[in-house]
Amino acid sequence: MKLGTVLPDQTRKDVERRLQRGGIDFGGFVFRLALVSCLVFALLVLLVLVADVFDRGFGVLTDRGLDFLSAPLRTRADEAGIFQSLRGTFWIGVFVVALAFPFGIGAAIYLEEYAPDNRLTRLIDVNIRNLAGVPSVVYGILGFSIFVKAADGFFPGSVGDHAGKTTAAAGVTLAVLVLPIVIITSAEAIRAVPREIREASYGVGATQWDTIRTNVLPYAAPGILTGTLLSLARALGEAAPLILVGAVQGRLGSRTGFFEPEQLSEQFTAMPITITDWATKPANSGFVENTAAAIIVLLVVVLLANAVAILLRNRFENKRAGR
């Protein structure tokens, strides 16, 4: 039979019948159903939690509005606010950004670009990964035994039992806590820079520094940003290390401003601490609603950090893709 001639009718029908699917793929259907239910279950748990929190706490936010954010900690639920807690969390964030980001990104650049590939480097690499998995309480002990003592010596004004248990010590502790995560995610982003780009840069006579500054870092920026901002979100949500570093609830210093750097040498609280404390108060004291409201605020802060991460990442990615 020559090519291009029409198949006889009988053959065509035969082929058509064979090509049409025979029956339903039952196994595939069940598998797909199982996967969808995994997703639904995971989302449902989250949704119930968030809905419950909003149900209890949203009233506080709508009734009291800014007053809830600007009022200090008080013993009466309808007067108590989260001003000092927000302030503590803000300054902890400042420490993470100022310490963990530059040191973490710097260490990642060194490990990926400069460090020789030998046993020592690999050992360090493995141990940074292990550090990222160390429970945060352990970092709290580190913060208590090192940073609190250091802060005690650093700020001469603080005396007594609370000496050294300052915002600064807490900030440094949480910066160190997320440092391994910043290093790992940054190193992975740097490793993902295509070899072709490095070669192109070296090929026209760029130095290693030129190549890192003008090609590697811009290319890795989206990945680095995502990792670092997610680690910031993690730091803002940590409570356990802060308890060990000496976060208090009440009896806070006299500073009233939000941005006054002097408070770094004073006692502190933070959002997760306040939430933990309020959550343990009696059920009918009104603090249950306050707890929920504080959780909403913390969620918003963390989601904002993530939103910024996503926006910046998209911007850098678009730039990288030439759009």
């Binding site: 780009i197 192109a200 840069s201 090929g203 026209v204 006579g205 760029a206 003008t214 893709a321 030439g322």
Partner: peptide
């Protein structure tokens, strides 16, 4: 490498503008 340039197997322009690609070597 400034005296002995190289062109690679896969075209590998930088994710930058056309101008910045060509000006890259002189700039560094």
């Amino acid at each position: 490498r400034r005296r002995i340039g190289m062109v690679f197997q896969k075209p590998n322009p930088f994710p930058k503008s056309i101008f910045d690609n060509v000006a890259y070597g002189p700039r560094v």
